[in-house]
């Protein structure tokens, strides 16, 4: 029998975050739009955050390591979204397209 917090075992969180991660992975691999691709990355980062916080709460709530790393993930996600969307808007102005497959000007 597993330990429960609020009646919920840890593996519920892990399964939800694994599913969320795989949905985000599918978006990153299969979408034809750079903005949708960034949304997939956001979903994956959120899945990582759920995992970090769930493990922290269930195993080591006395230290603040899990919270610190989850906060760093949050900040890096915000920075990644800002730079990624700026790049997409800038690319769209030049090429009138944000299909990642069409952005091959730098190919040798």
């Amino acid at each position: 029998m597993q330990n429960l917090l609020n009646g919920i075992p840890l593996w519920w969180y892990l399964v939800v975050s694994a599913a969320l991660f795989c949905i985000g992975l599918y978006a990153v691999l299969a979408r034809k739009n750079a903005i949708a691709l960034l949304m997939g990355v956001e979903l994956m980062l959120n899945a990582a955050n759920i995992n970090l916080l769930a493990f922290w709460r269930y195993l080591t709530p006395a230290s603040s390591g899990g919270l610190a790393f989850a906060a760093f993930v949050l900040v890096i996600a915000a920075a990644e979204a800002a730079v990624g969307l700026a790049l997409i808007v800038s690319v769209y102005r030049i090429t009138r397209s944000i299909d990642p497959e069409k952005l091959d000007q730098m190919k040798l």
């Binding site: 599913a19 795989c22 691999l29 299969a30 979408r31 034809k32 769209y92 009138r96 944000i98």
Partner: peptide, 25 residues
């Protein structure tokens, strides 16, 4: 980036991507 709406939402590797994500899950 208006004007990018309504395009085909997924590329030709969508099935392979879904299978990969499913296996990882």
């Amino acid at each position: 980036t208006r004007g990018m709406q309504g395009m085909v939402p997924r590329n030709s590797q969508a099935v392979a991507a879904a299978v990969t994500a499913g296996i990882i899950f």
